[in-house]
Simulated assay, not measured.
Amino acid sequence: MPKLKIAALPDDKPVKVATELPASVHRDLVAYAEALASESGRRIDPAKLIAPMLARFMATDRGFAKARRAGHPSRAGGSEG
C-alpha cells in the first residue's frame, strides 16, 4: 500500500465547525480512515481526518501561499463570520 499523506493526528485545541459533505466525499473519507486504520493498526474516526486534510491541502496550494505572502488573507485571523 502506498504511504498515506495523513499519518498522525495532532493534539490541538479544536474549534467546532458544522458542515455538510456530499455523500461521495463522506464515503471516500470513511474509506481513507479504513486505509489508515489498516496501516496504523488503530481505528480512526473519519471526521478527525478533515482538519489535517484541509491543512495539508492549504499547505501545498501554491496560489494560497502566494496570496498569503502578499497579505491576502490576513494571518491575524480577522473576522470569524
Rank of each mutant, 00 (worst) to 15 (best):
P52Y: 00
R75S: 03
S38H: 14
T60Y: 04
A8L: 13
E39N: 14
E20Q: 09
P22W: 02
L49M: 08
A33Y: 07
E80M: 09
A51P: 08
I44N: 03
T60Q: 15
D28I: 00
L21A: 03
P14S: 11
S24W: 02
I6T: 11
R62P: 06
R42H: 11
A67L: 13
T19D: 02
V30Q: 04
R68F: 14
K66R: 14
V30C: 06
A23Q: 06
M1A: 09
K66A: 13
P52E: 07
A70V: 08
A59E: 15
E80W: 13
A70M: 08
P46Y: 04
A35W: 05
V17P: 00
P2M: 08
L21R: 07
P10F: 05
V25F: 11
S24N: 07
A76Q: 15
L9T: 01
A47K: 06
A7H: 07
I44Y: 13
A7Y: 07
A23C: 00
K3I: 01
E20A: 06
L4R: 08
L36R: 09
P14F: 10
E80S: 13
G77S: 07
A51Q: 04
A35Y: 04
F64R: 11
P73G: 04
E34K: 01
A59Y: 03
D28E: 12
P2G: 01
R27L: 10
R42C: 00
F57Q: 10
G77N: 04
A67I: 09
G71L: 03
A37K: 10
A55D: 03
K66T: 15
A70C: 04
A70E: 01
R42S: 06
A18K: 14
V30N: 07
F64Y: 15
D12T: 01
S38L: 03
K16I: 12
P14W: 05
H26Y: 12
R27S: 10
A47W: 01
A37Q: 15
P73A: 06
E20R: 04
V17R: 10
G77F: 05
A51M: 05
R56P: 05
V25A: 11
P52S: 03
V17D: 02
P73S: 07
A47Q: 15
R75C: 05
R42L: 01
K13G: 05
P2E: 12
A23M: 01
A51F: 11
P10L: 00
G77A: 00
I44F: 15
S74T: 15
I44E: 13
P14E: 00
K3S: 03
K3F: 10
